[in-house]
Amino acid sequence: MDEPEIRPVTVLTAQPAHERTDAVPDTARLAVRMVGLCKRFDERWVLRDVNLDVPSGTYLALLGANGAGKSTLLHTLAMLSPATSGTLNLFGLSATRPAPALRARLGMIGHQPMLYRDLSAIENLIFFGRLYGVSRPRQRAEEMLERVGLTNRARSPVKTFSRGMVQRLAIARALMHAPDLILADEPFSGLDVPSVLALQRLLAELHAEGKTIILANHDIGQSLDLAQRVVVLRSGQVVSDRRTLDTDTDQVTREVIEA
């Protein structure tokens, strides 16, 4: 494979997370390990030498300008789009090529809801539950609808839902099979304030339950409030990786927008 053309960028942290002595991970407890991950679309390198370790139970926010590679990174993590080169391990197992068994441990909330508009909310959830081999899918679907506050609309077709309701149902779909790793790609976009607050609360609950969450987001302040760790991507490269307790909005903003 051709080596990606790495343009010089300002690396704001000295080393990638997995090499830092203050963050030596217990590999057995790593939800995600990326080593030298690269992704190319035609001639354009979208991810370049991404090294990232995410221990289980971490709430990580992925920040970056449009086109920085956040969505591509999440798609690669979800095995929707294979990496061009590098290594990807999920829960200690190789995920460089699509692995159906590993997919059962992932839940993704994307730009699009990944639902069928002509089916009702509960039909969608039962369908996806069965696809994941969930036992008692109807009971689980009812639980999930209650959790996202859609019990009273369980039998309504999705096409009659507002944007906020669709997003809540998409979250229920992503959580139907109780995944260990939740990938959320800008889940707050287009939501009104009550829906944003409800989703923030839900993600916090999931984190408290021990789930690993990787959230791609544009709102820096919100990300610092929600996550434990913030990683900034620029031109497909990790330019900073730090604990949110050790950083402030201005610092991260500079890292995101620095040309």
């Binding site: 997919r103 992932l106 994307g110 699009q112 990944m114 639902l115 696809l131 994941y132 081999g133």
Partner: peptide, 15 residues
């Protein structure tokens, strides 16, 4: 393709 449903299928642990 509508609403990304195909991606939902591709995420599932099926061939």
């Amino acid at each position: 393709r509508h609403d990304g449903a195909l991606a939902g299928l591709m995420l599932a642990p099926i061939d």
